[in-house]
């Protein structure tokens, strides 16, 4: 059952991508490269059906670990590449690249709130943008909530960091050493990957129906 594309919207999208890309290129070359990367990110997210909010939600609700596994693959490769670049930067005397931020109680609270929020809204930050591109009017509301919440969160940031424990940014190999730190991260990620296969056999939050199915097999 082959269906043709929607020629008019497709043409509009392509014309817009090219013209806006040229506009960005004139402004700054880096921006046009980022434009193309952003478009690829969106394309891949849609076609491969990766949904970051499904990582932990689908295992809980449907005993479905496929997204969790895909994200672990993403993490392992992304970690390997970043680590190699970090070693390269270190050897060449540059700053260690990557994302480093303060951590502490506020990180944990933030994680919990984010986890609840993405399950309720039905999409994480990337998923919200993705669903806007798919034509969901609803996710414009989620996006405005996201912007509002972000602003509030930034405003209250000092309240959380001054009242509860917060530690300076840390690069794990600084404690464990480069080799041990890398191996540790890789072991944990690999262990989690293995764990998904173990947990798949034990439905916890499932419907009775699923449980009987799991027992049969």
């Amino acid at each position: 059952m082959k269906r043709s594309s929607q020629p008019l919207p497709t043409a509009l999208a392509i014309i817009f991508i090219i013209s806006y890309g040229i506009n960005l290129y004139v402004q700054q070359q880096l921006l046009s490269a980022l434009w193309l990367i952003g478009i690829s990110l969106g394309y891949i997210l849609y076609r491969s059906g990766i949904c970051f909010s499904a990582i932990c939600r689908d295992p809980f609700l449907f005993n479905d670990f496929s997204t969790a596994r895909a994200v672990l693959v993403l993490l392992i490769i992304s970690f390997a590449g970043t680590f190699m670049f970090q070693i390269y930067s270190n050897v060449n005397g540059m700053d260690i690249p990557g994302k480093f931020h303060s951590w502490g109680v506020h990180t944990a609270i933030g994680g919990i709130l984010f986890g609840i929020g993405m399950v309720l809204a039905g999409g994480c930050a990337a998923g919200t943008l993705q669903r806007i591109g798919e034509g969901f009017i609803l996710f414009l509301i989620v996006l405005s909530g996201l912007v509002l919440g972000s602003t509030l969160g930034a405003a209250h940031f000092s309240w959380w960091t001054t009242r509860f424990a917060s530690f300076k940014p840390l690069f794990l190999p600084e404690i464990f050493g480069w080799a041990a730190g890398g191996i540790l991260t890789l072991t944990i990620l690999g262990g989690l990957f293995y764990l998904t296969f173990v947990l798949e056999k034990y439905p916890s939050l499932q419907n009775k129906e699923d449980q009987t199915w799991a027992q049969k097999n």
């Binding site: 994200v71 509301i141 996201l146």
Partner: peptide, 24 residues
Amino acid sequence: GLIGGILMGYGARLALGCNVGAMI
């Protein structure tokens, strides 16, 4: 959607990243 969005935004700023920026 609105509650979820606000919780997500607030949480992401406390943790300094969403599940893309902070987790990945």
